[in-house]
Design a protein around this nucleic acid. Structure first.
Length: 282
DNA sequence: AGTTAAACCTGGTTGC
DNA sequence: TGCAACCAGGTTTAAC
């Protein structure tokens, strides 16, 4: 469900309220993608630090009162395809969990709850962010879209290393993280690039145009609070608004807002790709 | 080595 | 109306 903008919207919603909160209890529901990796009870009494994001992962540091090192243990979280986090006023117990609430973190600042019908999401304990299992998962990620060290030159160089279709390469997160199926389609449309074009056949100027389109698309989605196609909502239950601005995503058969041609749907690497033949060139 | 399928799940929508 | 088939915002793992 969530791509980078939705995850960042989520992070911004919980980071402030949970900073400095003390963990009072944990509850796990049905199994998620991986086991938690520790005894839930062992985290009671820890204190939540600054929640950060890397790609579509969230890192929730948990400090122990006696521990004042530069690094702490914590929970690496992923919302998968259908996950969302909500934060509600602190209750005294963990009652009221629904059938798809699979992780509850009760703190003295509120209850953080992961609802994830499909359970592709994950909550994994790690002794630190730079050791396994957190580091193992994070190390595969490409550069952050808004990292200044990601330049048109380095982006183009990364694309040159791949001969798969550009849409597939964007989803792989190797050249840049954060764009999922919606924003990859939208950015390619904005950049005027055909999704089936081999990544290594993209010229320098077009790579630069694509990087700019990705950044614009992601930034705009962030401003609008993300996309709410079916069930995404921020931590307060509010929906994002981006989806109503999508030019091609989920709009098969409808006219392209730029040229009027009918938007097409094809399948690439088992995922739907939406694009406009009129304005996206090979 | 690099690209593509299979797998993990549930639920909503579409079509016969 | 009932039921099967297909679709969905992701990414690891296994297989060509």
């Amino acid at each position: 469900m969530p791509e980078l903008p939705e995850v960042e919207v989520t992070r911004r919603g919980i980071a402030g309220p949970l900073r400095g909160a003390t963990v009072l209890a944990l509850r796990m529901g049905k199994p998620l993608r991986w086991p938690l990796g520790c005894e839930p009870q062992a985290l009671v009494g820890t204190q939540v630090g600054d929640i950060t994001r890397r790609g579509k992962y969230l890192w929730l540091p948990l400090w122990r009162p006696a521990d004042d090192g530069p690094n702490s243990e914590g929970l690496l979280m992923h919302l998968g395809m259908s996950g969302s986090l909500s934060l509600s006023a602190a209750s005294t117990n963990l009652n009221g969990a629904g059938p798809h609430d699979h992780f509850d973190l009760l703190t003295n600042h509120g209850l953080l709850r992961l609802n994830d019908p499909r359970r592709f999401g994950a909550v994994v304990w790690s002794a630190a962010i730079d050791v396994a299992p957190a580091a193992t998962l994070l190390q595969r990620l490409g550069p952050e879209p808004f990292d200044p060290s990601l330049t048109p030159l380095s982006f183009h160089a990364a694309l040159q290393r791949r001969q798969a279709p550009i849409k597939t390469v964007l989803l792989s997160g190797e050249a840049i993280v954060g764009a999922g199926n919606i924003y990859a389609c939208e950015a390619l449309h904005q950049a005027g690039i055909h999704p089936a074009l081999r990544a290594d056949r993209i010229s320098r100027p077009r790579a630069e145009r694509l990087l700019a389109a990705l950044r614009q698309t992601l930034a705009r989605a962030l401003d609008l609070g993300g996309s709410s196609l079916r069930d995404f909502s921020d931590v307060h239950g509010a929906s994002g608004a981006y989806q109503s601005f999508a030019a091609v995503y989920d709009r098969a058969g409808q006219p392209c807002p730029r040229c009027g041609a009918a938007v097409r749907r094809v399948v690439q690497a088992q995922r739907s790709t939406y694009f406009c033949l009129g304005c996206q060139r090979r």
